[in-house]
């Protein structure tokens, strides 16, 4: 049994059709899992279902052996699942430090040592700690977003397209940061458009098509699979 499991999830938005059906995603601590697939495959939806942002019609979400399918997103955050949305993932009007403080809103203890840990992980944030996040570059903002999500010391971190809209150089840098986060024993699920790069740092990957698991395997396996290459990786 993996640490965090989305089991046979079927879900859609409101009364609309099912976006994902019988979709399963698993992640262990200290592991990076990439969810790939064409547009409209339900990648983000699968992730949102695991966070509780939409209701499951069937299936379950299990964290460390406990069924959390009925919990609200806020309660799941309290259980240590952190989420970085694709857009609007920082408080643009607040300073870097305030972003981190709000990230730790649920913590009652002294957060200064956690902030120091985040600064160690993302040194640029220390340098810019009193700057308004809205004035930072795209890559720096993504680091703030990651830092904010890490403030609750999550066991699982979910990233919705962390490299959307950043330059290739910044993308590499962000992936390096994600690898460093992984080393702190956090399970990471990420939805990615840059499939090749994502798989190269992932331990495993899932390819979704029309809301169902189509392929799954280790990053290397998927990269080598001729069918996956042809359909999603561009030859």
């Amino acid at each position: 049994m993996s640490f965090f499991v989305g089991n046979q999830m079927t879900a859609g938005y409101g009364q609309g059709p099912d976006i994902i059906s019988s979709c399963s995603i698993k992640v262990n601590r200290g592991e990076i899992v990439a969810i790939l697939g064409p547009n409209g495959a339900g990648k983000s939806t699968a992730m949102k279902a695991m966070l509780g942002l939409l209701k499951l019609k069937s299936g379950s979400v299990i964290l460390n052996g406990e069924d959390i399918s009925k919990l609200s997103p806020q309660d799941r955050v309290k259980k240590g699942i952190s989420f970085v949305p694709q857009t609007k993932n920082v408080f643009a009007e607040l300073t870097v430090k305030e972003n981190l403080e709000v990230g730790a809103f649920l913590r009652e203890d002294n957060i200064n040592n956690i902030i120091d840990e985040i600064y160690e992980l993302f040194p640029i944030l220390k340098e810019k700690s009193s700057q308004i996040v809205g004035q930072l570059s795209g890559g720096q903002r993504q680091q703030v977003a990651l830092g904010r999500a890490l403030m609750i010391k999550p066991s699982v971190l979910m990233l919705d397209e962390p490299t959307a809209g950043v330059s290739p150089i910044v993308m590499d840098e962000l992936f390096q940061h994600i690898l460093r986060v992984k080393k702190t024993n956090v399970g990471i699920i990420m939805v990615e458009q840059n499939a090749k790069q994502a798989l190269s740092i992932s331990d495993r990957g899932y390819v979704l098509v029309t809301g169902e698991n189509k392929f799954e395997g280790s990053g290397v396996e998927l990269l080598k699979d001729p069918e996956v290459r042809r359909s999603f990786l561009g030859g």
Binding site: P73, Q74, V77, K78, F83, P85, K88, N89, V90, F91, A92, E93, L94, E98, E101, V102, G103, F105, L106, R148, I152
Partner: peptide, 18 residues
């Protein structure tokens, strides 16, 4: 700060437990 955060980005504030 949580009030300003809520005003700035409601969804993210909810995700932070506010």
């Amino acid at each position: 700060t949580s009030m300003r955060a809520y005003s700035d980005n409601e969804d993210l504030a909810l995700l932070s437990g506010i």
